[in-house]
Amino acid sequence: MDIDVFVAQHRAEWDRLRYLVRHARKLRGPEADELVALYQRTATHLSIVRSTAPDPALLSKLSSLVAQGRAAVAGSHNPSWREFGLFFSRRFPAALYRARMWWIPVAVAFLLVSGALAAWVATDVSVRGQLATPEEIEQLTAPGGQFESYYSSGPAASFAFDVWTNNVWVSAGALTLGVLLGIPVIVILLANAANVAVAGGMMASVGRLDIFFGLITPHGLLELTAVFVAAGLGLKLGWTVIDPGTRTRSAALAQEGRTVIGVALGLIVVLLISGVIEAFVTPSGLPTAARVGIGVFAEVVFLAYVFVLGRRAARAGETGDIDASQVGASAPATG
Rank of each mutant, 00 (worst) to 15 (best):
D2Y: 07
F6D: 12
A8R: 15
H23A: 13
H23M: 07
E31N: 05
E34T: 13
Q40C: 14
R41Y: 13
A43G: 14
I48A: 12
V49L: 09
T52Y: 11
P54Q: 00
A57T: 11
S63F: 07
S76I: 09
G85K: 09
F88E: 01
F88K: 00
R91P: 07
M101R: 07
W103L: 02
S114N: 02
W120I: 12
D124I: 06
L131D: 04
L131V: 05
I137A: 10
G145K: 00
Q146I: 02
E148Y: 03
S152E: 04
S153C: 05
S153T: 06
F159S: 03
W164Q: 02
V170T: 09
A174P: 10
V179T: 13
I188A: 10
L189M: 10
L190D: 02
A197K: 04
A204S: 15
D210F: 15
D210Q: 15
F212E: 08
H219Q: 15
G220C: 07
L221K: 01
L221M: 05
V227I: 14
D243L: 06
D243K: 06
P244W: 04
Q255V: 07
T259N: 00
L265V: 09
G266L: 03
L267Q: 04
V270E: 05
I277P: 08
G285R: 05
A289T: 10
V292S: 12
I294V: 12
G295A: 11
F297Y: 09
F302R: 02
G310C: 01
R315L: 11
A316H: 04
E318Q: 13
E318H: 08
I322Y: 13
V327D: 14
G328K: 07
S330A: 15
